[in-house]
Amino acid sequence: MQTIVVRYLETVTGSGGAVVETVLGSETYEDIKEALIPGVPQAKPGRVPHPVFITKCFVGVNNHLWRLESVSTAQANAQQPAIFSVLIKRHDVSKEIFLYQTLKSNKVLTAQKLLGQQGTLVEVDYGFVQQTGRINALSKTNKRYMDTLLEAEMHKRRLAVVVKVISGNLIQVAPVTSQTIKPGDKTAFKLDQSTLDKMPRYQNSGKDSYVICSMLECVSVQRILPPVSYFKNGRDSGRNVNYGIALSRAEEKKLKSALVHAVGASDYVPYNDVLQVQLKADHLQVSVESLAAELEAQTERLSQLSAVERLAKSWAEAMGRNYDEELEFQRALDEENRA
């Protein structure tokens, strides 16, 4: 018996300008208690829920990527199963060129050549957390479905920083989030506005962006595409398949530090040894500068004493006295007074 039906609908403008919902296709489940359906994200306080996209290929429709608009339900009864109506909207992907497409079109290029520089910025389609539609027409979490993305795992399309090219089709990345990191969290750092200004989408978002190295992940080249960035003229923008946007030198240092803390190796890795040597060198430099200042003062004092010695010799000669004898007499007198 039919237990669940999932219908996919699209809003179209019919004859006379009337707006109607057209069924693109449906999935029917028999003797299945629950089925995975697109999940509508819950909006967090003060935030707009992020958009959700699904991939679905329908007969006679060229479009395959859709933006989720809503999910409605119809209760099951003796005559019909639970019906989930998923309203979707076409999403244009004609200007999106994923990394695997770039590599396929140019056999000379490799992932290492394009993304070999640590700190290169990319966008990653992680996917979306789904829900389960049940025979009672209720939607619940998909916590039992470990073969899908689960709540709290990295999801949606987001900016990311390349950490390492693992192989020709696997890239290690650190994702970027707009959620403020906890104070004192050394596993993350904030991107400079000058870096965000190179990418229109993030330049004008009105949000800060943080690289979170505590959520490192290896992703397929099929999930990676270049972020929309400005071309050399500074006006036009598009997806540069040469992946020319990267962290600044200062941000690269922050990335290395965050990676060290993310793997819990900050107490003994070479980075820490170098840091300690640098601190010692800085301390020695302060000592050198202090001694140099003292030497300069002593040199000035010696110069003054030399002038006094010359004056004393001149006076001794003018008075018919022996300078060396008079100096020895004065030293003996000083020694006697100290005693």
Rank of each mutant, 00 (worst) to 15 (best):
K104V: 05
A76M: 05
L103A: 01
E96H: 11
P81I: 07
T102F: 00
S85P: 02
I97P: 00
Q101K: 10
K89P: 00
I97D: 03
F98I: 12
H91F: 11
A74S: 15
I97F: 07
V86D: 03
P81E: 10
S94Y: 09
K104N: 09
L87R: 06
K95H: 12
A74Q: 15
A74K: 15
F98Y: 15
A78T: 12
P81H: 07
I97L: 09
Q80I: 11
V86C: 07
Q101V: 03
T102I: 10
K95R: 12
A76C: 04
S85L: 06
A82I: 05
K89Q: 15
F98A: 10
E96W: 11
F84L: 04
Q79S: 15
R90V: 02
N77R: 05
N77Q: 07
V93R: 06
V93L: 11
L103G: 00
S94E: 13
K104W: 05
F98K: 13
L99F: 03
N77T: 11
Y100V: 13
H91W: 10
V86G: 00
H91N: 08
A76T: 04
K95G: 07
R90M: 00
S85A: 11
I97M: 06
Q80D: 06
H91V: 08
S94V: 10
Q75N: 12
Q80V: 10
A74F: 11
K104M: 05
S94L: 07
V93I: 10
E96T: 14
S85W: 03
N77V: 08
L87G: 02
Q75C: 12
H91L: 01
Q101T: 06
P81R: 05
N77W: 08
A78C: 08
H91C: 03
F84K: 02
Y100T: 13
L99N: 04
L103D: 00
N77K: 07
S85I: 10
L99K: 02
R90H: 00
H91D: 09
A82G: 07
L99W: 02
L87E: 00
V93T: 14
A76I: 04
N77F: 08
V93F: 09
I83S: 05
Q79N: 14
Y100D: 15
A82R: 06
A78D: 15
L99E: 06
L99T: 04
T102S: 08
I97G: 00
K89V: 11
Q101Y: 01
A82D: 08
P81F: 05
Q80A: 14
A76V: 03
Q75E: 14
A74V: 15
A78H: 11
A74N: 13
Q80Y: 10
F84C: 04
V86I: 11
V86S: 01
A74E: 14
Q79V: 11
D92T: 05
V86K: 02
Y100E: 15
L99H: 03
I83T: 12
K95C: 12
Q101C: 06
P81Y: 09
Q79G: 12
Q80F: 08
Y100R: 14
R90P: 01
L103V: 03
A74L: 14
R90L: 01
K89E: 14
F84G: 01
A74M: 14
T102W: 00
Q101M: 11
